[in-house]
Design a protein around this nucleic acid. Structure first.
Lengths: 333, 333
DNA sequence: GTTGGCACTCTATCCGCGGGAGTGCCAAAT
DNA sequence: ATTTGGCACTCCCGCGGATAGAGTGCCAAC
């Protein structure tokens, strides 16, 4: 019953009345009976009517109950699977993969897709190289566990020769290769304090440089796609609301914080309405899944759409995308 | 007269009639006189009335004439200048600078800001380094003229030792250091064809790798900010239009093509309405300026807003931002 | 438990009607 | 010749009232 109502409401966003429900649902019951049931559902808080003579609309609690207890996910659309394979399987950089995934999510669900960039929780230090650029500018290149590369231009206090730099990188590589990056960082900090003056200047500079590189390792980000899909839903057609929503999308910090909440819960997470605690997502829901490689969670992906979304269709899509993205990233290792 | 009408219309977006114009403008003329003038302006095609008893609204031709012949730019708001200095002056990476500039443009004008990433037309090859990662994976690092760094992981056909790679990079660096990157590319291609088999395998691989790196040097991009500002304008409150606009923003290729047109014209460029030839920018205008370092144009920046924008206020802001961005990038050289 | 009937409520929509704003034109004034 | 006031005209916008439609709740009957 609740299921039928939600199905219907998801279809066209209009409050649904007993009459349509009687016709629509497979059940052969008269509108009167349905009305009785609906009255019960209303008492339970699962549905509500916007005004006396409109149909019923599922409430947040209604969706929650629906999702928690009587949801049966639909099998994946074959075409969609093909498409996902094709887009995520090829050899792309992690960033491109994330963008593809985001595009896929929004394209297939017709909602907004969001994917965080993969972030290793315990990245391994692999090696570091220093290249002299000019007098006191040095290019530092840091390679971490999965052949991910970061580079940065450093300013050194004193002029370093190529040989100096070579020596410095050799030293660091010998000492730290394969270690956890956080450990390396800690060790460096420690050493810098301890032997502040005693060690030779070159090493000191090397330490400083390495520390600088490590510092910048904290960048996080996410990729969104298909925000404009959300404009199609008339419940969001209010410009005010729309603007708040889009502004929220641009507030990276908030979004990341929100997405972070999802990474901790295990498996598919569903935030309905303001369950997330974010007012801007009023009237919106979010379905997310973490993606991982070798059991290590690298990030989260999901979709954002109006509360009225086809959860049964969206959930398997999010799930599959997370799996495929994990798999695609795995080939990079 | 036209100026007064445009001023007024820009203020509140309502068709403006003879009465208000008489009161508002410094001119001491009766509404009747104004009506005569307005009738003339209408015949010239500079204004139009949406319907019989509404005021007049400037047409695209009206704006064009206004902008071309009787526009006097306003001096820059002092606070804005301070803010721009503060945001663009500090030591940031080019990408951060571009993001700041984009944010500034949108923040100060309350429109959408857009800035292309800087792109050297004739980048110089400075040096290349190859680091072995695993069996047949090599990290290539290309440093171009302004200490800009790109890196990429390459797959080689055969296993290369560190020494091999060192030799290869030495060879390339000796041969090409300081040359124009396009030349280097051409030379490499040529050489690869000529001596296809005669040169030793290592060099051949090196060539291939260098070529691969060069190939990927064609990435362009732009940064946008403040799109949501556009939602404030009631002439864009139509969801349909809004969606088209935002979709257009996401079509990077089209946007880049559009922005490319602006880089060729010299100085400030103003597209009013669909003058750009892009239907999606209907009802919108774009004010752009190229930014450059040492006389070399690196990119374009500008704002996008409704046709009804305060051109006299926006133009100096765009101009100043372009200058400041150029200056900020200059310190990187 | 289910059903049909009926009165009731509330909304959305259409219609008609001024009020208001603005125009165009003309004749008078400067 | 330009400017001005006056006047009739047109058109939009907002208002109230009437109406149709959808849906409910309740009750009595099956």
């Amino acid at each position: 019953m609740l299921r039928a109502l939600i199905d219907r409401y998801v279809q066209d966003g209009q409050p649904v009345g007993s009459r349509t429900l009687a016709r629509d649902a497979g059940l052969t019951l008269s509108p009167a009976t349905i009305r009785n049931v609906l009255a019960d559902l209303e008492e339970l808080g699962f549905v509500a009517s916007p005004h006396t003579s409109a149909g019923r609309v599922p409430t947040v609690q209604g969706y929650r109950f629906f999702v928690d207890t009587l949801l049966t996910v639909q099998p994946l659309n074959r075409r969609a699977v093909e498409r996902m394979r094709a887009e995520l399987d090829v050899d792309q950089s992690p960033k491109d993969l994330v963008e593809s995934a985001s595009g896929l999510l929004s394209g297939i669900t017709h909602l907004a897709g969001v994917v965080t960039l993969p972030k290793h929780e315990h990245p391994l230090f692999k090696r570091v190289e220093f290249l002299p650029l000019s007098e006191n500018r040095v290019l530092a290149i840091l390679v971490t566990g999965k052949d991910e590369v970061q580079n940065r231009v450093l300013s050194t206090e004193k002029v370093c020769s190529a040989a100096d730099l070579q020596q410095a990188s050799n030293y660091l590589n010998h000492l730290f290769a394969g270690k956890d990056l956080a450990e390396v960082r800690a060790a460096l900090l420690h050493e810098m304090q301890e032997t502040q003056t005693s060690m030779n200047d070159m090493m000191h500079t090397a330490m400083q440089m390495a520390e600088q590189v490590l510092e910048t390792n904290r960048d996080e980000d996410f990729i969104m796609a298909g925000q404009t899909n959300l404009m199609e839903f008339q419940e969001l057609c209010d410009i005010e609301r729309l603007r708040k929503l889009f502004d929220a999308f641009n507030r990276k910090r908030d979004m990341l914080h929100l997405l972070d909440q999802c990474v901790h819960g295990e498996g598919i997470q569903i935030f309905i309405g303001q369950e997330s605690g974010y007012k801007m997502l009023d009237e919106c829901s979010m379905v997310t899944a973490p993606y991982s490689v070798d059991g290590q969670i690298l990030g989260v992906l999901g979709v954002i759409g109006p509360t009225r979304m086809a959860y049964d269709r969206v959930i398997p899509i999010v799930d599959a995308t997370a799996r495929l993205l994990g798999a695609a990233l795995n080939t990079k290792e």
